[in-house]
């Protein structure tokens, strides 16, 4: 099966009337226009085009732009959008945080390690040296960035907003064996860094959590203020909290610090009041009974 012959098709395509070569000439005109367009921006902005003033960059790259859209990396770099995802980092509390300075947001629940498609996250869950019970913070945290596929699941499914995708993509190094397994120290970045690189998203997450603070810290603060208000005003708690030892050496001590400020003696900061736990249990049982009744009927 042969469709049109070449001659027929050429005639048809060039509308019969046109001379041979018209199509070529049209294409060359376009090339010429692109060539001219590539100078338009230069004339418009001069050397300012490559200056560090950022005001014309949006124009140059925007939908109205003509001409060259190339970027002179590394003299100029395209800032990445907020949702951009690169190798993850862990959020720790800012240095100047009144209570939890330097404390991890991570509770070592392990969800990030489970949802990680290439399984590049290793977490050592912390244990209380005295009781042996798990404490809500990681003892160690490793990400093999050679394996990481930058999918962003860890950040997406973290229930504590404790792991986030970074925007710093310049991670090249000369030796992968020594540099490319990021440990907790290398992974940790302050919460304010996340608010800086992704203000909109940090704000949205705050709305979901209901506070700028870590979920658990906020819960604890509410509980603290609630029980404190039975004795005095909640404000009275704050100076006491600030007076907690500033130089927190180990993470175990960091966990203990808020505990000291908590009004409930002897309770670890993450454990709930027995009454509350009892109530939750009762509610859960109620729900279960309701479900059973529904599916039965």
């Amino acid at each position: 099966m042969r469709g049109l012959t070449l001659q027929e098709a050429t005639n048809e395509a060039s509308l019969g009337e046109n001379m041979y070569g018209t199509g070529l000439a049209k294409g060359l005109m376009l090339t010429l226009r692109h060539f001219v367009d590539s100078f338009v921006d230069d004339l418009r902005y001069g050397l300012r085009k490559y200056s560090h003033a950022t005001d014309n960059f949006g124009l140059r790259q925007g939908t109205e732009a003509k001409g060259v859209i190339t970027v002179q990396y590394p003299d100029e770099k395209v800032a990445v959008p907020e949702r951009f995802r690169f190798v993850p980092f862990l959020i720790v509390e800012d240095e100047d945080h009144p209570i939890r300075s330097g404390k991890d947001w991570c509770t070592s629940c392990g969800i990030c390690a489970k949802v990680c498609p290439p399984q590049c996250i290793w977490i050592v869950r912390g244990n209380d040296p005295d009781t042996g019970r798990p404490v809500p913070e990681p003892e160690a945290f490793f990400i093999d960035i050679d394996i990481c596929m930058n999918c962003g699941y860890c950040a997406e499914y973290c229930p504590f907003d404790a792991i986030k995708m970074d925007h710093d993509y310049e991670l090249a190094s000369y030796d992968r064996t020594s540099h490319h397994i990021h440990d907790k120290e290398k992974l940790s970045k302050p919460a304010s860094y996340w608010r800086d690189i992704a203000p909109t998203r940090a704000y949205e997450e705050m709305l979901v959590r209901g506070t700028w603070e870590h979920k658990d810290a906020a819960k604890e603060a509410r509980r603290g203020s609630a029980s404190a208000s039975t004795r005095s005003s909640s404000r009275a708690q704050e100076p006491q909290a600030e007076a907690a030892p500033a130089a927190v050496a180990t993470s175990a001590e960091a966990a203990a610090a808020p505990a000291a400020s908590a009004p409930v003696e002897g309770a670890t900061p993450w454990s709930e009041d027995d009454a509350k736990r009892e109530e939750r249990r009762r509610k859960a049982l109620e729900r279960k009974a309701k479900r059973a009744a529904k599916s039965g009927g």
Binding site: F57, P74, E76, A79, P81, F84, D168, P199, T200
Partner: peptide, 23 residues
């Protein structure tokens, strides 16, 4: 989906020489 469309296509400067766009 992973997320709804963002209101703005917006970047934030993070590295040296970063150029910002916002549409």
């Amino acid at each position: 989906l992973f997320g709804d469309l963002p209101e703005r296509i917006k970047s934030v400067s993070n590295l040296t020489n970063d150029r910002v766009r916002d549409y």
